[in-house]
Design a protein around this nucleic acid. Structure first.
Lengths: 236, 236
DNA sequence: CGGTGAATTGACGCTGCTCAATAGCGGTGG
DNA sequence: CCACCGCTATTGAGCAGCGTCAATTCACCG
């Protein structure tokens, strides 16, 4: 049995879904006898769900990475989060999805039927509590990100982004001296509220300052973490 | 008995807290026998709770308005939300508050002890479910706001802000042809990720375009709502 | 090796920020 | 009742950070 909430355990969130790691098959859920979770594969850039669609499932990333975003009529895009393995999406309590979700790279995602989940949550407090904790966790990330989008400079945004990726990797118990970013500069730009060019220039700056080293566009070595933290302009 | 969740009823969220309207006194909670809610008054600009403090209470605005925000070391501020009567704050599932909360104007706030609330939520599914719905609601607002902060122009931000205030007022069953804004331009600027001057210029523009009329800085008449919606660049 | 999409780099322009002065408004007291 | 005071908002001029447009360069993959 693989615990999908491994990354949340140390933060005290209850684990409530355990899935059998055999891919492609219906998966038994620990403590959710009436529910079935399935693992589904998505190709790079494939849509997982669309904004406005009825919210039929809750999703948990197993492999790869997922972006959730909103669009304006003229095509401007804001990515609200990247979801890495072990993280949940589709938590909104509304009937329809408020975001579009796409696979950043080839990914595997576990899905749980919301209708069944919600009726269980209405009965069992620990299920509902887990949903609360997960939603609150997403909310906290969103609050941090609003500070970044509203008040940080381009350089600070990119430094903050890299540090956050490092911390998430460490939280999973991995060594994070070198990052392999699954997303393109365009994704990073739309996450940070910048353009591709500005993101690229910021990377170049950080390299010139000796904070990071690049090996190709995707591989980032954290050379001077303290300096990076300084440049990220940590909260007061 | 006054139902604090009146504004949520039509959206299907369970009502779980009912308070006696007599101010200053301990208040009985509907369905929460072991808990006591108290109403507290705060003066304009008074702190309700600070970032990093232990999260002892859940808060519900009764009268006035509350801002929640984060600061950077050098004083840059990002307001993540204005909370109006009937709305909840302090929902994060963490031990400490992630934001600072202050009264925008003289306000009354109902508080509920979190420790007791959480132990009840762990037992009773409808309490936990209500917390989920509330957190998810806050999350949805945050997602909309990230799109605004990351991708909208100054004019679009101000137009979106005014429309949102109108819609919130309407949702409470009030006629919203004229708004009375409780917050200053500085608050609006820090909410929209702009400066005071840019906010002021945007108001002036909107007035010149015939979308709004101003009577003093705080009173805004919505003169052409369709045009305002056009300028807010609604999501696709 | 060659082709293709992504990333980088450069030149230039515009939106929104900074700094500064003025105007407006509400509260207070003579 | 009105004049004054302090705070907030508005307006203006100049500037800079980031966006736009365009040209290479790079990396990956067949």
């Amino acid at each position: 049995m693989l615990d999908l909430m491994a990354s949340y355990q140390d933060r005290g969130a209850p684990r409530f879904i355990r899935v059998n790691p055999s891919a492609g098959e219906p998966i038994a859920l620990h403590g959710l006898d009436g529910l079935v979770a399935k693992e589904i594969s998505f190709d790079r850039d494939e849509e997982i769900y669309g904004e406005g669609e009825p919210a039929e499932y809750l999703y948990c990333v197993r492999r790869g990475a997922v972006r959730t975003f909103k669009l304006l009529r003229d095509g401007r895009r804001q990515i609200d989060a990247f979801h890495l393995p072990g993280e949940y999406l589709g938590l909104s309590a509304t009937q329809t999805h408020r975001l579009t979700a796409e696979a950043v790279v080839d990914s595997k995602v576990v899905i749980v039927q919301r209708k069944a989940l919600e009726s269980r949550a209405a009965q069992e407090a620990d299920i509902a509590c887990a949903m609360w904790k997960l939603a609150a966790d997403n909310l906290r990330n969103a609050q941090d990100h609003m500070l970044l989008l509203g008040r940080k400079t381009a350089q600070e945004r990119v430094a903050s982004f890299l540090l956050k990726m490092v911390r998430r990797k460490e939280k999973l118990g991995k060594e994070a001296g070198t990052l392999t970013l699954p997303m393109t500069r365009a994704d990073i730009a739309d996450f940070l509220g910048l353009t591709i060019e500005t993101v690229s220039r910021s990377f170049t700056n950080l390299r010139a300052l000796g904070c990071i080293a690049l090996d190709g566009a995707a591989t980032v070595k954290i050379a001077d973490r303290n300096e990076l933290e300084e440049l990220a302009e940590a909260a007061a």
